[in-house]
Amino acid sequence: MGNGTSIGRVRGLGPAKEGTHHWWHQRLTAGANLVLMVWFVVSVALLPTYDFETVRHWMGQTQVAVPLILLVASTFYHFRLGLQVVIEDYQHDETHIVLMILLNFFTLAAGTTAIFSILKIAFSAGAAL
């Protein structure tokens, strides 16, 4: 908190202390999602077939596994921020708190499972299945 300008004297004094990170992170991840999702959609479209060996071999490569993990991190954080706004708009009181806890659990559980699966595929690439 500064003491120079009038905005500096009041910044951070509201009940939430700060307020723009949610909005800003939604935009940051939107930009990252745009790049990563276009890469993902084009890459999947270009796969010759979708049988087990082809897809597994594709995902086992470092240059695929790494952006895919980044995609999970960015899109899952983005949807967690987005669904928070939906919950805040339509649900209040206890329901709001319960749904926010469920949303956080869902995002973390799904994200961890997704990243673990990608790593498992990448680390066993080339090994006998």
């Binding site: 897809v55 995902m59 997704a114 699966s117």
Partner: peptide, 9 residues
Amino acid sequence: FVWWLVALA
């Protein structure tokens, strides 16, 4: 998406 990844793994 997560089902697809888990199945593949």
